[in-house]
Design a protein around this nucleic acid. Sequence first.
DNA 1: TATGAGATCAACT
DNA 2: GTTGATCTCATAC
Length: 189
Amino acid sequence: MAKPSRLHKQFFARSVHAVAPDLIGATLLFNGVGGAIVEVEAYHHTDPAAHSYGGQTARNAVMFGPPGYAYVYRSYGIHWCVNFVCEREGSASAVLIRALEPTQGLAAMRRRRGMREERLLCSGPGRLTQALGITQAHNGLALDRAPFELFARTGKIDIVSGGRIGITKAVDLPWRYGLSGSRHLSKAF
DNA sequence: TATGAGATCAACT
DNA sequence: GTTGATCTCATAC
């Protein structure tokens, strides 16, 4: 297999609907811990379910910045969720990373998550950030430099799309993308 | 297996 | 004061 190529900011400077499916199968590492992305959701500022819908605020400021950066926010007071900012500065669109298949740093992930079930380590946005150790402190970091590492997928894969999860607005928009048949999805398509 | 409630907090109205 | 891009555990069937 050829050495995978790194994803740079150019990769994210496209429509969220182009970037989101391209992220499926890509490898995400944070401090050397991570794996292959198997599930994402696209959020655009014209989308009522997006945080950026309704304008810029202190919380979502990163979404309004240039592409290729991480937007981290707290969900339900408990979890952290991580997004990759896309398109161009001011477009306020991003891709939510929902699940990945753990391949590197299994021990660190198990320790942080307090469980051994590999399938449950990263199968959900809150679980994923906990396993990788991503928090508010990492909001606004560039995705093409440490501690982040992103590699393009190699080879051909089957991508499926469907309605999004865990939201109450625009639920029916088919902007959730996943790796067909993966055992690490937060929920089957 | 399925359903429901609790945890816990920053941003927003 | 309310809400939410969630997860876990308990209880019910």
